[in-house]
């Protein structure tokens, strides 16, 4: 499996779409948003930069976990690469587990890059322990999105997976308040936002950077989504690889 993971990582790092949209885009957006906020008012300062760091880090990790799963996986299924793997001694569970582990690793660059830029150019500073907790939480917290991407990739052909991944990614990012704070939304939208894993996931980060403990409700919401989407991913994978 380590070799399989290495191969999966290698191919994504060579994929221009991944590098541009997943690794570069969030950090560019982050710098852009910071400048807009700084130009608007002097109120936020370090607080706004830290808040945006979580938002854009979350957006980057979210897009990494959906983009590196749904479309490549749908393509591999359709194009016969999955069959090629199925006729080797590689067990089925290892194929999907490798995808999941690879996705976790592939979310690291965008997350780390946003954090480093926040630290070095926007003056965001936290205690070392809090950085570690934030990084770990925002990393493990992408599990629901990775599961969602894998489920989509198992269920639909690549032509459909592409728009489905886009809608899922932008839908979760915007409705979950990663681009515009949930507080500025109408009441109904806020109710929707609070039920989404993208909000609960980012809210853990927002609380951590403002010096508070993450609310239990956020942790529970994220976990429930991880379990539900994880079950969906396993079900979809079994359906996709079942011997007809």
């Amino acid at each position: 499996m380590p070799n399989h993971i290495r191969v999966e990582i290698l191919r994504m790092l060579r994929n221009k779409r991944y590098v541009i949209f997943v690794v570069a885009f969030p950090v560019v957006l982050y710098v852009l948003f910071c400048n807009i906020v700084a130009g608007q008012a002097s109120s936020g300062g370090g607080g706004a930069a830290a808040y945006l760091m979580v938002s854009m880090g979350a957006y980057g990790a979210l897009s990494a976990s959906i983009m590196s799963t749904a479309v490549p996986w749908a393509q591999e299924r359709q194009a016969g690469w999955l069959r090629q793997l199925q006729i080797t001694p590689l067990p089925g569970w290892s194929i999907i587990l490798t995808k999941l582990v690879s996705t976790l690793l592939l979310a690291l660059p965008s997350l780390a890059l946003v954090f480093v830029v926040a630290m070095t150019t926007q003056g965001v500073s936290l205690a070392p322990g809090r950085w570690a907790l934030l990084f770990l939480g925002m990393w493990i917290g992408i599990l629901p999105f990775a599961a969602l991407g894998l489920a989509v990739g198992s269920l639909v052909p690549p032509d459909t997976a592409q728009p489905a991944a886009m809608i899922g990614m932008f839908g979760l990012a915007i409705l979950g308040g990663l681009w515009f704070p949930v507080d500025t939304m109408p009441a109904t939208m806020q109710t929707i936002a609070h039920a989404l894993p993208s909000f609960s996931y980012a809210d853990i980060g927002w609380n951590l950077v403002s010096g508070q403990a993450p609310p239990l409700q956020d942790v529970v919401t994220t976990l429930v989504w991880a379990v539900v989407l994880g079950a969906a991913a396993v079900f979809a994978y079994r359906r996709a690889t079942a011997r007809a």
Binding site: V7, L10, R11, M12, R14, N15, E76, A79, G80, W81, R83, Q84, Q86, I87, T88, P89, P91
Partner: peptide
Amino acid sequence: AVARGEVGAMLQDGELIPEL
């Protein structure tokens, strides 16, 4: 037999991973 590595096959449709 497949799990034991006793079989190798070339199927009709099988694209490769383009980036590798």
